[in-house]
Write a protein that binds this DNA or RNA. Structure first.
Length: 871
DNA sequence: GCAAGGTC
């Protein structure tokens, strides 16, 4: 029997589609990556009985990157990234082993049906799958077609079965347009990012972002925030005047009337109108109207709308917590609700339920929920309303609650999101809110005034979304044309126009969606990016206020080449890409042409960077004026300044050289000791009192002196044969946990002595209160670790007898066993790693031994002694 | 160290 391999874009879809096509009778097992499943069943295909294997990828299989050597920032001119630098496709997520997985499943299959999402990205993934699988599939006989594409517009039985019945072919042009998009984004984004970052980092010491990035989505996103900032800055308040009239409708009731002219900006004219009306005793009714109006129930919920609501304080649900939920966080929360089965797939553009979608099922789930049982029961009893006709993007149904849940079950955060999703869903099958809008037009002297009021006829969906209720307004008196009411007061109010506020995240999402910046899945990422890079900060009410850095960047682009920041930059490129997708333009030509344009833009930008720099100067301090003098330069022997702001570094203003330091720790001078190789003063890097620390030569760390050393290494990884700070002199033995690490004595750690791995975060606390610990030249006869020579004060010595000195192996010596305790450096939480001691059985050469020499393995009984010792 | 797009 022949085999048909079928591949969907994500595991959840593979399951739903297989369920539909197999009519529920399939057998499933997990694939070798533990993430994707394979669902198998038998059926017929092209008129013959076959075996079906339905599985999935996890989004893109491959990602585009430059060849390795072009990723060295110091060695490559960013301009080369536009054409010379070759790119290659790498596995998008090496942990998933997707290519291998596809090949294991695809080997020996005769046909392949591609069920990837029906958009351009999906079409591109089709070819990624084919690249992996075709070489291992059975060869076709006599030109028989073996590759098929299923096109579906929703995940419903009819749609999926129809797609299976009318298989087509994958569209190569659409896939190519995505290839072009990837290459453009990569080349343009990286070139600008590298240039800007290097240029400004080399000049300023307090940029508060370690990366000055540029991208066709993130930069316009920032642009929106700065545009609003500029509006606020340039806003000039204007004074205006308003007439307000009050009439008595009853003995003790009065009615406020709005002026039909709304406002005037000239005081004297307002005064004139006031004079013309204030002497009038009566207001005459000129017309009355009563209109029944409806407030529409919401469209079914899609991702972008969910993110908007989540950010703008989740409606009234947030009254308790006052803060909204950022898009990134909201997506994570939604994904968790989805994987736990509380809601349907949360990434969808669709706001329309398929015709045969079972709306009552999910609604029945909510019929006993304490918060909305009454509403739901009534809807079920009296009949639900058809949801409004929304947009069908052909991806997934709108976000729908699938299972009832309580706050106690979900925790307050997830509950807020779940509660919103559920209330929204119930609202979509509820009725519109109906209300009566009545208005009365008055004339007082020559001026006209109006008064309106609303009364609710039936609340409809606002019952489940009370924050959407029509606000109760004053009940208007019943009257008719010609009636008069006594005027009790006419007054003139002076007011001022007020500036807009900073952009809310919800407004930003709307703007991005409108201009096609990002997709439902990537919008949260872009917003997160501009926050993390310190271009904007999230203020109360989730308003995005640009930082100085963000403002300077955008203003700089405006000065040099506004197109770099305008939202049209994306859509213009996308227009070109669409030509590829439609087969109207050649992929190579469009790519080459567009790259050429951006290459010119890039060179112009580089030539004009002084324009942006002028703005930078105002907000930031030059490197030479930043930081505190810390250690001496080995070349000029003057003090270099320590710049703490990320990326932390040392700067010698005399030599105009910058030396980067390890991040995320503190740096101090190390006893004015010097590196024997270059005469630079050593500094001591420390990750905190409970973590580890090691000396480091600023020069060696940036220019590794030996071939086996890499950039960023400290003395604890230095293979200098005789320097007293080197790995060679302070290394003890192979790390108990990681593959390549060596435990190195921290010579600065006394009296709470530490031995720390120079690769991972293993730290052994030992010999507390010893006044001296040295690494001996001798090695342990059993395990080859270096012996330690430990001196204690007489009063504090834990050694047996009256001994104050002992030399022994930290792994094997029975006396030392009592004095050593293994820990992980404080900076890393144990939850994030495999757990302590999990690889302690692994024996390998100890690090002190110069590379290349053969090493003895520890005897097995020694290994088990070691295991017991460290746990 | 960089983009944006999938999804986990």
């Amino acid at each position: 029997m022949k085999t048909v391999l079928m591949v969907a874009e994500k595991p959840s879809l593979a399951q739903s589609i297989a369920k539909i096509l197999s009519r529920g009778s399939m057998s499933s097992h997990k694939g070798l990556n533990g993430t994707c499943s394979v669902h198998e069943y038998t059926g017929t295909f092209a008129g013959q009985p076959v075996h079906f294997k339905m599985t999935s990828v996890c989004g893109h299989v491959m990602t585009l990157d430059f060849l390795g050597k072009y990723n060295k920032w110091d060695k490559v001119d960013p301009a080369e990234l536009f054409s010379q630098a070759p790119t290659e496709k790498k596995e998008a997520n090496p942990k998933l082993n997707m290519v291998k997985f596809l090949q294991v499943e695809g080997r020996g299959c005769d046909y392949i049906v591609l069920w990837l999402d029906c958009d351009k990205e999906g079409e591109n993934i089709c070819f990624e799958v084919l690249d992996a699988v075709l070489p291992v599939m059975n060869q076709a006989h006599g030109g028989e077609k073996t590759v098929f594409r299923a096109r579906f517009s929703s995940i419903t039985d009819t749609d999926i079965c129809n797609a299976m019945a009318r298989l087509g072919e994958p569209d190569h042009n659409e896939a190519l347009s995505v290839d072009a998009r990837q290459e453009l984004d990569l080349r343009i984004g990286c070139a600008f990012t590298r240039f800007q970052t290097k240029y400004f980092q080399g000049k300023y010491g307090n940029l508060d972002s370690s990366l000055i990035s540029f991208g066709p989505c993130q930069t316009p996103t920032l642009g929106f925030c700065v545009e609003r900032h500029d509006k606020i800055q340039s806003f000039k308040p204007e004074t205006y005047w308003v007439l307000q009239a009050k009439v008595n409708t009853d003995k003790d009731r009065s009615l406020l009337l709005d002026w039909d002219r709304v406002r005037v900006f000239d005081r004297e004219i307002a005064q004139m109108f006031l004079n013309m009306t204030k002497l009038e005793k009566e207001a005459q009714v000129e017309a009355t109207s009563r209109k029944e109006k409806a407030k529409q129930r919401p469209l079914a919920l899609n991702t972008v709308e969910m993110l908007r609501v989540a950010s703008s304080s989740l409606g009234w649900l947030s009254l308790l917590s006052l803060t909204g939920m950022g898009p990134q966080h909201a997506m994570q929360t939604a994904e968790r609700l989805y994987t736990q089965g509380y809601i349907s797939y949360p990434r969808t553009e669709t706001t329309h339920y398929p015709e045969n979608f079972d709306l009552k099922g999910p609604l029945r789930q909510q019929a006993n929920h304490p918060a909305w049982a009454d509403t739901v029961k009534r809807l079920l009893a009296e009949g639900i309303n058809r949801p409004r006709k929304g947009h069908d993007a052909g991806d997934h149904p709108p976000i729908t609650p699938m299972r009832s849940a309580t706050e106690a079950e979900l925790g307050s955060e997830a509950w807020r999101l779940y509660e919103y999703i559920t209330r929204h869903f119930i609202a979509t099958v509820s009725y519109d809110c109906k209300y009566l809008q009545s208005s009365i037009s008055f004339r007082i002297g020559p001026e006209h005034f109006t008064c309106t009021g609303k009364t609710v006829i039936s609340p409809g969906f606002t019952e489940i979304m009370p924050w959407q209720s029509v606000p109760l307004e004053e009940n208007l008196p019943t009257c008719q044309k010609g009636d008069t009411f006594p005027v009790s007061e006419v007054k003139m109010l002076e007011k001022q126009t007020s500036p807009p506020d900073y952009l809310t995240e919800a407004e930003l999402i709307t703007l991005m969606e409108k201009h096609g910046i990002g997709t439902d899945a990537s919008i949260p990422v872009h917003i997160n990016n501009i926050c993390q890079r310190n271009y904007v900060v999230v203020e109360s009410g989730r308003r995005l206020k640009p930082t100085n850095l963000g403002i300077v960047l955008v203003h700089g682009y405006y000065k040099i080449d506004a197109e770099l920041v305008l939202p049209t930059i994306r859509s213009a490129v996308e227009k070109q890409l669409n030509l590829i997708a439609q087969g109207k333009a050649d992929y190579r030509q469009v790519l080459g042409h567009t790259l050429d344009i951006f290459k010119r833009k890039f060179h112009y930008f580089v030539d004009s960077i002084a324009g942006m720099d002028e703005l930078m100067e105002v907000s930031f301090s030059p490197l030479a004026a930043t930081g505190k003098p810390l250690s001496r330069c080995g070349k000029c022997h003057r003090f270099m300044k320590y710049i703490q702001a990320k990326p932390s570094r040392l700067h010698c203003s005399h030599c105009d050289e910058t030396y980067t330091l390890p991040q995320n720790g503190t740096i101090k001078l190390y006893k004015e000791l010097r590196c024997p190789l270059d005469d630079f003063e050593l500094v001591l890097w420390s990750s905190g009192s409970r973590g580890k620390s090691y000396p480091l030569c600023p020069y060696c760390s940036n220019h590794p002196p030996f071939r086996d050393m890499k950039k960023g290494m400290g003395c604890n990884e230095c293979t200098h044969p005789t320097c007293q700070h080197s790995l060679s002199m302070l290394g003890i033995g192979q790390c108990v946990e990681c593959e390549n690490g060596v435990l190195v004595l921290d010579p600065t750690s006394g009296p709470k002595w530490k031995v720390a791995c120079n690769k991972c975060n293993v730290v052994a606390h030992c010999f507390e209160n010893a006044h001296r610990v040295r690494v001996s030249a001798d090695t342990c006869s059993a395990c080859e670790a270096a012996l330690l020579d430990v001196d204690f004060n007489k009063a504090k010595s834990p050694l047996p007898g009256d001994e104050t000195q002992h030399t022994g192996c930290v792994f094997c010596d029975p006396i030392f066993q009592e004095l050593v305790e293994l820990k992980h450096a404080a900076s890393c939480h144990p939850m994030h790693r495999g757990g302590p001691g999990r690889r302690q059985g692994r024996g390998r050469a100890r690090g002190r031994r110069p590379a290349g020499k053969p090493s003895a393995r520890r005897p097995k009984d020694k290994m088990s002694a070691l295991a017991a010792y460290f746990v």
